[in-house]
Design a protein around this nucleic acid. Structure first.
Length: 275
DNA sequence: CCCTGCCTGCTG
DNA sequence: CAGCAGGCAGGG
């Protein structure tokens, strides 16, 4: 489910709550969810550790520990994190529970079980999670017209597929690639190599602008987040085309179309995004 | 490069 | 019932 704006929202909600708490017990109900190390070692290493903060990188989350260790997780399609009182009703498909020293629990649930956890010690190099292969953050100063042209300017594959390539820019998924290309007025199936200078300029501007906008629209209090079980993506009413195939374009009134690009369902406006 | 697998649940 | 879902790794 979550792309960068949602993962950032989760980080902003959870970090102030978890910071300073010590993990007293870890329960792993589905051992395949801990990709590294194996579940028993994962639990052993984390028990007794104190949380110093959280970070986001692309769609990955970090839970940082005072001893220098860190938990890394990726929610993939349907993963969710909730910080709950101990007696809060448990979500179906809850695979990991971290009990904290204030009596509350951090719970990971994931219907489709694609989400993964890793745990690395202070000095340990992360060759496991895939974070090392990520490209730049969308809000980095490095995200410039020149960067896009350098890395994508000669690619034959569709610009939409390029935006989904986590090794170039980290964090963009199927929803926001569609939204970004709509705002930039670029037909999603265009070979990246066919984009003109001014289109790369527009993308360099629109990518951080749209993601920032959707992070802001997602803002939620910890109480609201818990009430809605972390499933309330408040920015969805502000999506202009994702999920709106067959409806009219909010800008030009054309009928929004849908096509499959790189195996992913894609929505675009034939009026605003000409081939 | 495309294709499949990984999972469960919802929609048409 | 098939088809699809906000992701990604791995295989051919």
């Amino acid at each position: 489910m979550p792309e960068l704006p949602e993962v950032e929202t989760i980080k902003r909600v959870l970090e102030p709550q978890l910071k300073g708490l010590t993990i007293t017990k870890v329960t792993v109900n589905r051992p395949e969810v801990t990709a590294y190390p194996a579940a028993d070692e994962f639990c052993r290493l984390l028990t007794g550790q104190r949380v110093s903060g959280m970070m986001r990188r692309g769609k990955f989350l970090y839970i940082l520990l005072e001893n220098g260790g860190r938990v890394i997780l990726h929610l993939r399609m349907t993963g969710g994190l909730l910080f709950t009182p101990a007696d809060f009703p448990q979500e179906k498909h809850t695979h990991i529970i971290f009990e904290m020293d204030d009596g509350r629990q951090l719970r990971f649930s994931d219907m489709r079980r694609f989400g993964r956890f890793w745990m690395l010690q202070n000095e340990e190099v992360d060759t496991y999670s895939g974070i090392a292969k990520l490209g730049i953050e969308p809000f980095d100063d490095e995200l410039t017209t020149e960067y896009l042209i350098l890395h994508l300017g000669k690619r034959k594959k569709a610009i939409k597929e390029c935006l989904l390539d986590q090794s170039i820019i980290a964090g963009i998924g199927n929803i926001y690639s569609d939204e970004i290309l709509f705002t930039a007025g670029i037909y999603p199936a265009r070979p990246a190599g066919s984009l003109r200078q001014e289109e790369w300029e527009r993308l360099a501007r629109v990518i951080p602008e749209r993601l920032t906008y959707f992070i802001e629209k997602n803002e939620i209090t910890p109480e609201e987040y818990l009430e809605t079980k972390g499933q309330d993506y408040r920015n969805t009413p502000f999506l202009q085309i994702y999920g709106h195939a067959g409806k009219t374009c909010p800008v030009c009134g054309s009928l929004l179309s849908r096509m499959v690009i790189g195996g992913r369902s894609s929505v675009y406006c034939p009026g605003c995004q000409k081939n």
